[in-house]
């Protein structure tokens, strides 16, 4: 791959859920084994049901939490094992956009303070210089200069998400991790924000790690897609191949669940039954076998390996060759 901005290998995170001084310690594996790579200027989407570990993966990459195992290489530098004090490079290269535009902006700060905060942290610019950049950035995200003296609660959801994007963009990051950035917005506003993100990507050559459960959103914005189930990536590939020729039964079921407006186009669907198993006590073998319509004995015993089936697609399933 040309110039990868982010390379994640065998990332693992387990959280302690019980235990202490005198009790047996219990762990839950939120992220079991995740590997992927993002090229400069492209969008990689992580999709999956809630609780599959996609948000945790995002938080691991920004080092809001420390990984248990594995390697995260951001712009050529290993950050998985770095100490918090050594992460200055990461904090400038990677920024985050959050799901809830209401909660992610401090209600006590004015817009110019909110958006100028990353500059205050990372640069030695004077207050006037920072404000100038903030005003420019407001224009870039489709707001205007007169908004700078207001508080976040005076804006609508879509406008707030624009503020969140402006804040993420102002340090000129190379990678933006967008954790469900449009799922709290109205559908009509969603497309505005997605188009803004796409437009900014072209202008500034930013890469996105886009975390979402909404496949129609993912289809709109991604170049590559990784499908996660219970802490592992089960299928990974170019957007077109994932949508047109999904190989893993879970991917097939997810894509079949996207509503299609034309009833004559309705195909035979895989409909998943049951809930996601409890990650505290994951199923043996292939973690998907409890819900997979094609499961057989081998699925209960052996964990399927990630197999590269062509240049553009890898799948972890025993029945795909």
């Amino acid at each position: 791959m040309p110039n990868s901005i982010l390379k994640v290998e065998n990332l693992k995170k387990s959280f302690q859920i019980a235990g202490g001084l005198f009790q047996k310690k219990q762990y839950v594996n939120a992220v079991i084994d995740v590997s992927f790579e993002i090229e400069e200027g492209t969008t990689f989407s992580l999709v999956g049901e809630s609780g599959c570990g996609k948000s945790t993966t995002g938080r691991l990459i920004t080092r809001l939490i420390a990984p248990t195992n594995g390697s995260i290489i951001v712009d050529g530098k290993e950050v998985a094992t770095a100490k918090q004090s050594e992460l200055k490079h990461l904090r400038q290269t990677v920024q985050m956009i959050f799901q809830d535009p209401y909660a992610s902006l401090n209600p006590r700060m004015k817009v110019k303070e909110l958006i100028g905060e990353p500059l205050e942290i990372h640069t030695k610019l004077s207050k006037a210089e920072r404000e100038k950049l903030v005003l420019e950035m407001l224009e870039v995200v489709g707001l205007n200069a007169e908004h700078a003296d207001r508080y976040a609660h005076e804006f609508s959801g879509g406008q707030r998400q624009r503020l969140g994007i402006a804040r993420a963009l102002i340090t000129k990051p190379k990678l933006i991790i967008a954790d469900e950035p449009v799922s709290a917005l109205d559908v009509s506003i969603q497309s505005q924000i997605l188009n803004l993100l796409k437009q900014l990507q072209q202008e500034y050559k930013i890469s996105y790690l886009f975390i979402s459960h909404d496949l129609s959103v993912v289809e709109h914005i991604s170049h590559y897609i990784g499908v996660m189930y219970l802490g592992s990536i089960v299928e990974i590939g170019r957007k077109e191949t994932i949508f047109n020729e999904p190989k893993h039964p879970y991917t097939k079921a997810l894509i079949a669940s996207v509503p299609i407006a034309d009833p004559t186009l309705r195909k035979k669907k895989i409909v998943l039954t049951g809930d996601i198993p409890n990650p505290k006590n994951p199923p043996s073998g292939c973690t998907f076998h409890t819900r997979c319509p094609f499961a057989s004995d081998i699925c209960k015993q052996a964990i399927p390996e990630m197999k590269k089936i062509n240049e553009e697609q890898s799948v972890a399933c025993h029945f795909v060759n």
Binding site: R91, N106, I121
Partner: peptide, 25 residues
């Protein structure tokens, strides 16, 4: 627990800054 505290941490704010600017108020 506020998301904006996590946001400040993700952009590299120091502990003192997070405490003073985002939590103390």
């Amino acid at each position: 627990e506020n998301v904006y505290v996590e946001a400040a941490q993700s952009m590299g704010a120091s502990h003192v800054r997070v405490l003073w600017k985002h939590i103390f108020p």
